[in-house]
């Protein structure tokens, strides 16, 4: 009989150990997925900040060749100021969109000035800006990938058990509307 009891206790111990191991692994993987989402979100901000910093330089360069396009410069400057002042996720997204479209019109204006288009500094800024626009798009894509991986984990068995216990809630995807998709594909 004693042997049977030992077996039972041993069995329970093994189950407990396995449960603890499962718990620790799952909990840690959920936390790291969650942190990855925050990190990938901040990557978007890094790129938007770089664009923000690039704008004055760009405006100055264009001004040197196209002094008369005052309204375009004003629009860009105003949109940039709006980005700095915007608050809330929706407000920020809207301000960034505004800046994107004013930059587009800035480059459309530049098309009319062949000397400007031939300027090395301008070409470099143009490449830099389209590079940043691409990086913003990729950063958003990566953000969505991390959200997908996290949301899948908290909704599928067996990770959903742990997620339910600790109130891990699904995160929201970044949705690009149609207008913004076009902004992303800027062709100057």
């Amino acid at each position: 009989m004693a042997f049977g009891l030992e077996l039972l206790i041993g069995g329970i111990a093994v189950v407990i150990v396995l449960a603890v191991v499962f718990f620790v692994f799952t909990y840690n993987s959920l936390i790291s997925k969650k942190l990855q989402i925050d990190n990938s979100w901040s990557q978007i901000d890094v790129q938007l900040k770089r664009r923000f910093d690039l704008v004055p330089n760009l405006v100055e360069t264009v001004k040197g060749y196209a002094k008369h396009e005052k309204s375009v410069f004003e629009n860009v400057t105003r949109a940039r100021a709006a980005v700095a002042g915007a608050s809330g996720m929706a407000g920020k997204a809207q301000a960034e969109n505004m800046l994107s479209s004013t930059l587009k019109s800035l480059f459309a204006v530049a098309e009319n000035y062949p000397e400007l288009k031939a300027n090395e500094n301008f070409k470099m800024l143009q490449e830099e800006l389209s590079g940043i626009e691409n990086k913003v798009a990729y950063a958003r894509q990566f953000y969505n990938d991390t959200v997908l991986s996290y949301n899948t984990a908290i909704q599928t068995v067996p990770t959903n058990l742990i997620a339910g216990m600790f109130n891990f809630t699904a995160r929201e995807f970044f949705k690009a509307d149609e207008a913004e998709r076009q902004n992303v594909q800027v062709k100057f």
């Binding site: 590079g131 990086k135 798009a137 990729y138």
Partner: peptide, 11 residues
């Protein structure tokens, strides 16, 4: 720029 962008996408 192309490589940097893709690395962001790949994480």
């Amino acid at each position: 720029n192309v490589v940097e962008g893709l690395c962001i996408a790949a994480g």
